[in-house]
Design a protein around this nucleic acid. Structure first.
Length: 462
RNA sequence: GGCCCCAUCGUCUAGCGGUUAGGAUCCAUGGUUUUCAUCCAUGUUACAGGAGUUCAAUUCUCCUUGGGGUCACCA
């Protein structure tokens, strides 16, 4: 059984990069009929908050990425960690170090001055004497020396580290007794049964430390997949300054989960030439072996394309529901089907759909000057008046084709081209030269509103 | 700086020794549309550099260069 997990520390919102590794983990678990677990890494009380944890959970809820089993909160597992720390101490695989912070800082300074690697020198490794007064010890693990540690990574291949290059007896418990990250990660992953770890490759270099702990505790080492980072346009790690990195911002901007997820799954992963993936397709096709080795630059123009694609292919019912989040209640509008058909073809986001709707439904308050100049000729007033009269005398006007027929008749009767009526009519109805088809617009706003808008335009511009 | 990772169109990517180096997006042009958008068609643009290995390297090896990550009593 494949068990994966996502383990954010609740220091802020759910990040776009975190979401991608979470998605990969989710897909891989689902594909294998396994489990996708969630663990909140809230051991740093100073930086963590419940609000942040809730925000992350809320984002997952929006995206429909459901986790299996209970969420694990590390802050509630002190006894477990304490037990394992004691075990390591008893087995002499770890020891208490009474070095003060000042001493440690001094050591680092001299090492730096001598251009040496900064590392703990192991001075308390075999200490058997009497503990110094007035200092609470940290607990350090006895890291192996003169050996090679190999991270068998499903994305990067075998990555070799020389213990002497990268390891020292690192701290596994602070002076206050609280465990550190590398220790709790190993313990929790083991206890939760996590056997496939998919995470950002910024974790690759501390994987050897976790392997040291796995081995000291006699745990089986999980399979690792270190997925490349997402970079900003400058090629640096994506940060808050790089525009929208909070997943929920995408909701506010009017993107749907399916578009965002489809966009993210293709960042660093591919399945041949396929671009469009439903959730089902993601699950059947996803395989971490197809994850790219190189970092990708975050650029959302493809997201816009995907979003527009999904909007176009969504049912009006679904769209009407989603649009209610954007201040747009269409349930009572009798021409909502026509309206939705029109706007979903033209918008990239739900937000744009809502704005477009308001543009159509609102009577123009002013008219674009250039448009008026271009569209209103000497005969425009006569033509629009004739059309208005035609509408007043017509009873059955419902469909776009009804309005089209009315226009056609005026065009025929006056022996003019379609542009003669279309251009000024467009300005009258929408206040500008571009926009949806006039037949549809008139059908949506109805006969009386159409007549009103023509009158307004003639009063203002003729 | 030490260690580690990475390198195909602007961007996302396919490629797994022999290809006119493919797709998508973006951009441009044309068509459709009374307009705009959509849609359709066409087009521009890429193997970082240098040595090897091989009959043959984008593909394998090494070096250079460039970029990134990481080096806490943070996660």
């Amino acid at each position: 059984m494949v068990v994966t997990r996502f383990a954010p520390s609740p220091t802020g919102y759910l990040h776009i990069g975190g979401l991608r590794t979470a998605l990969f983990s989710y897909l891989w678990a689902k594909k294998n009929g396994g489990k996708f677990l969630l663990r909140i890494e809230d051991t740093d009380k100073a930086r963590n908050s419940q609000e942040a944890a809730d925000a992350i959970l809320k984002a997952f809820e929006w995206l429909g990425l459901t986790h299996d089993e209970e969420i694990v909160y590390q802050s509630q597992r002190d006894e477990i960690y304490t037990k394992y720390i004691k075990q390591l101490l008893d087995e002499k695989k770890a020891y208490k170090c009474y070095m003060s912070k000042e001493e440690l800082a001094d050591l680092r300074e001299t090492q730096m001055a001598n251009k040496q690697r900064t590392m703990y020198d192991g001075r308390f490794r075999d200490f058997e004497g009497v503990a110094p007064e007035g200092i609470e010890p940290v607990i350090r693990i006895k890291a192996p020396q003169n050996t090679e540690i190999i991270v068998r990574d499903g994305v990067k291949g075998d990555v070799k580290f020389q213990a002497n290059d990268i390891l020292d007896d690192f701290v596994i418990a602070r002076a206050d007794g609280s465990p550190t990250y590398n220790l709790v990660v190993a313990i929790d992953d083991h206890l939760m049964g996590v056997n496939e770890v998919i995470r950002g490759d910024d974790h690759l270099s501390n994987t050897p430390k976790q392997i040291v702990i796995y081995e000291a505790l006699g745990f089986e080492i999980p399979k690792f997949y270190h997925v490349p980072m997402i970079h900003n346009a400058e090629g640096k790690k994506l940060s808050k300054r790089d525009g929208a990195t909070d997943v929920m911002e995408y909701k506010n901007m009017g993107y749907t989960p399916e578009a965002l997820l489809n966009f993210l799954v293709r960042l660093g992963w591919s399945h041949g030439d396929q671009e469009i993936f439903s959730m089902e397709e993601m699950i059947t096709h996803f395989n971490p072996k197809d994850i790219n080795k190189s970092a990708s630059i975050y650029n959302t123009q493809k997201l816009d394309w995907l979003s527009a694609h999904y909007l176009k292919n969504s049912s009006n019912k679904v769209l009407a529901d989603l649009l209610s989040e954007f201040d747009l209640v269409l349930t009572s509008h009798d021409k909502k089907e026509i309206l939705l058909d029109v706007i979903k073809e033209r918008a990239k986001t739900l937000k744009e759909m809502a704005e477009l709707t308001k543009e159509i439904l609102a009577t123009p308050r002013f008219y674009d000057e250039k448009a008026v100049k271009k569209a209103f000729k000497e005969d425009s007033a006569d033509i629009l008046s004739a059309f208005s009269l035609k509408l007043q005398n017509s009873d059955e006007l419902h469909l776009p084709s009804d309005y089209h027929d009315a226009m056609q008749e005026v065009v025929d009767e006056m022996a003019i081209g379609f542009g003669k009526i279309g251009q000024p009519l467009r300005v009258a109805l929408l206040g500008k030269m571009s926009g949806p088809g006039l037949d549809e617009v008139m059908a949506i706003i109805g006969k009386n509103e159409t007549i009103l808008r023509i009158k307004n335009a003639l009063d203002a511009n003729a």
